[in-house]
């Protein structure tokens, strides 16, 4: 008795192949949606903002009159913000990653810390804003200063850098670690002289990507009350400041049409900064990716 009808199988094969090809095409379309959106977004923004991207725009402070308004204060403020966020988040996150990968004993506290970090990664940025508003702005009386905002953003991107640094540290092969301790090097000597230098490209890539998220972050800054019109740049981390994404958000809410073009011009500046940061990250990753 023949259980499989061969004719039936070959007859249905054609239909199955067609279905496969149709779906393949649809899947390809899904993949291309991202590309289409990216191109549309960039073209739309550049068309709107190109003519407003002048030297004056880069060197003027914000203004209620669109023809005078610029991003100078916002760019300087964002640089200040990163100058606080970068060192704080690097020390906190890389320290945490080193502890978890190299020193943490296997116990419930360690498990709890790990679960806690992955939960922090899912907390909305606006909630971090409320944390910063209550603790840094009010209780520690830092006001809406660069320091308060920098600390808030540092805590927000901490989980991101911890996870990427952990991966970088874990990718250093254990044989190299054994070679070092096998010569009588202490734990910290092994970590500081062998593991960290080997993991540093991965760690730096993670840091740059996290900072590029922080530099475009708006919601926590709104909650902290970062001002949108200011005619000075900060002199210290305790001064108040403007930030580029806040400036963009302020302009997009303006009813006058001209501000929409300023918004687009501001976005172009922000995207160029992000593009540069991402290029550096990708360059470092590719340059050092085939080490082992």
């Amino acid at each position: 008795m023949q259980l499989v009808d061969k004719d039936q199988v070959s007859k249905s094969l054609g239909g199955r192949l067609i279905r496969n090809n149709i779906m393949k095409f649809l899947f390809l379309l899904c993949t291309l949606v991202g590309l289409v959106v990216l191109v549309t977004l960039i073209v739309d923004t550049v068309l709107d903002g190109w003519n407003y991207l002048t030297w004056d725009f880069l060197t003027s402070f914000s203004s209620s009159r669109p023809e005078n308004a610029g991003v100078y204060g916002a760019i300087i403020g964002s640089i200040w913000l990163m100058a606080v966020t970068a060192p704080v988040s690097i020390i906190l996150s890389v320290g945490t990653a080193m502890y978890l990968e190299e020193y943490a004993p296997e116990n419930r506290l360690t498990d709890f810390i790990k679960i806690n970090i992955s939960n922090l990664a899912g907390v909305p940025s606006v909630v971090f804003g409320l944390l910063g508003l209550t603790i840094f702005v009010r209780q520690l009386a830092l006001g809406n200063s660069v320091l308060a905002a920098g600390l808030t953003l540092s805590l927000m991107i901490l989980p991101v850098i911890v996870v990427s640094s952990q991966e970088a540290i874990r990718s250093v092969p254990s044989t190299v670690r054994e070679a070092s301790v096998g010569m009588g090097a202490t734990k910290w000597q092994t970590v500081s002289r062998i593991i960290l230098p080997a993991a540093i490209p991965g760690i730096i890539t993670g840091i740059i990507l996290a900072l590029s998220r922080a530099i475009g972050e708006t919601a926590p800054l709104v909650v902290l009350g970062v001002p949108v019109s200011l005619l000075v740049t900060p002199n210290s981390a305790l001064d108040t400041f403007q930030a580029l994404p806040m400036q963009i958000y302020n302009w997009v809410k303006m009813p006058q049409e001209e501000f929409q073009y300023l918004t687009a011009a501001g976005i172009i500046i922000l995207l160029i900064i992000l593009f540069l940061m991402n290029s550096v990250a990708i360059y470092i990753r590719n340059k050092f990716s085939k080490r082992y």
Binding site: P173, T175, V176, E178, A179, S180, V181, G182, M183, G184, A185, T186, I194, P197, A198, R291, Y292
Partner: peptide, 18 residues
């Protein structure tokens, strides 16, 4: 650390540091 300075080790796979 003291023991391992006196007792060196060569491993199965070559494992130079980067």
């Amino acid at each position: 650390e003291e023991l391992r300075t006196k007792v060196g080790m060569v491993f199965q796979n070559p494992n130079p540091f980067p």
